[in-house]
Each structure stands twice: as structure tokens, then as C-alpha cells.
Simulated assay, not measured.
Amino acid sequence: MEYKYKFFAYLPQEAKDIRTEVFVNEQKFENEFDDIDDIAYHLIIWNGAKAIANARLYRDDKQENSYIIGRLAVLKSYRNCHIGSELMRLLEEKVKTLSGKKISLSAQCRARAFYEKLGYKASGEIYLDEYCPHVHMEKLINDK
């Protein structure tokens, strides 16, 4: 499959639709949208004319040269096609262009192995976010 992607400096409708489908309809989260959406970069991947995956990226105000990834979502019919890995690769490349050195994320525990395969390390205790177990994960980004 041939995919295209684009970063946005605002939350596009396609990203809202994907996040609503994945997080609200499938996973029953209630507080999906927040003020971070106003300051984040939003990445969308399309298969032809159909938006199939998205994630957001924003600067971590608590740590210099550090960014946070969140709201990574792939539509159900496109899972297990390596779209999540492609989202993460594109996000990491974006962080490098922004002179970022570290990426953090809050991973659903069921996705922990996915992030570990990409080089992310878990730290701290497991915590609940909307009744769903999560763990903090980080990765240092090299300038290669």
C-alpha cells in the first residue's frame, strides 16, 4: 500500500474522526479532546483519500529538548499493517527536525511491547487513565 502523510499545526477533522472512532467508540474514553490539541502538531496518515491513522506531538515544558507523543490511533481495519510503527518513525523524525533529544509517552499497558520494540523504556508505576492501565515510557533520540 502507498501511504501519504502530513503534519498539521491545528487539529484537523480527520484526526478528530479517527480519535473518536478509536478512543471514544471502541475504548469508551470520555475525555478525548483537551487544550493540548491547540498547541500540538497533529500527524495524519492516509491510504488514498481515507485518513487511517493519527497521533499528536508537543513540546514538554518541563524538560529542555523533550517532546511528548500521544493519541496514537490506527483505524481497526488497518491494524497489524505496520501503520503504528510508521507513525512513530515519522514522529521521531519530526522531533529531530525540532532539535529534540528525548520523547516521552503514556502507553496503554497492552501496547507496551509495541513501544519497547521501537526502543522505548518504561519507567515508574502503572497508573490509570480513564480506568485504563498506562505506563510512562521514554526514548532518547540520536542525531544520526
Rank of each mutant, 00 (worst) to 15 (best):
M1V: 03
E2L: 00
E2V: 01
K4Y: 06
Y5V: 05
Y5A: 12
Y5N: 13
Y5G: 09
K6C: 05
F8K: 09
A9N: 13
L11S: 05
P12E: 09
P12I: 07
A15C: 12
D17S: 12
D17A: 14
I18M: 07
R19N: 07
T20M: 08
E21T: 02
E21S: 06
E21K: 04
V22K: 01
V22F: 01
F23S: 02
F23E: 01
N25R: 07
N25P: 00
E26I: 03
E26W: 01
Q27C: 02
E30R: 03
N31K: 03
D34G: 00
D35T: 01
I36F: 06
I36V: 12
D38Q: 06
I39T: 03
A40H: 04
A40I: 00
Y41T: 02
L43D: 09
I44C: 09
N47H: 12
N47E: 12
G48A: 11
G48M: 04
N54T: 15
N54H: 15
A55K: 08
A55H: 09
A55M: 15
R56H: 09
Y58I: 07
Y58A: 08
R59K: 15
R59G: 07
D61L: 11
K62Y: 10
Q63H: 15
S66M: 13
Y67W: 14
Y67S: 06
G70P: 14
G70N: 14
R71I: 11
L72K: 05
A73K: 06
A73L: 08
V74K: 10
V74D: 08
L75C: 08
S77M: 12
Y78F: 15
N80Y: 05
N80G: 08
N80E: 09
N80M: 07
C81A: 14
C81Q: 15
H82V: 06
H82P: 10
S85H: 14
E86M: 13
M88Q: 07
L90F: 10
L91H: 03
E93K: 11
E93A: 13
K94I: 05
V95D: 04
V95Y: 04
K96F: 10
S99L: 07
K102I: 00
K102C: 02
K102L: 01
I103Y: 01
L105E: 04
L105Y: 04
A107M: 01
C109E: 07
C109Y: 02
A111V: 03
A111D: 00
A113F: 02
F114S: 11
F114Y: 08
E116G: 04
L118P: 02
G119Y: 07
G119T: 03
G119N: 05
Y120Q: 12
A122P: 09
A122S: 13
S123E: 13
S123M: 08
E125G: 03
I126E: 13
I126N: 06
I126Y: 06
Y127W: 15
Y127T: 15
L128W: 07
L128T: 09
D129V: 14
D129H: 14
Y131T: 12
Y131S: 15
Y131E: 14
P133W: 04
H134Y: 12
M137K: 06
E138S: 12
E138F: 11
K139S: 10
N142V: 13
N142H: 13
D143I: 11
D143S: 15
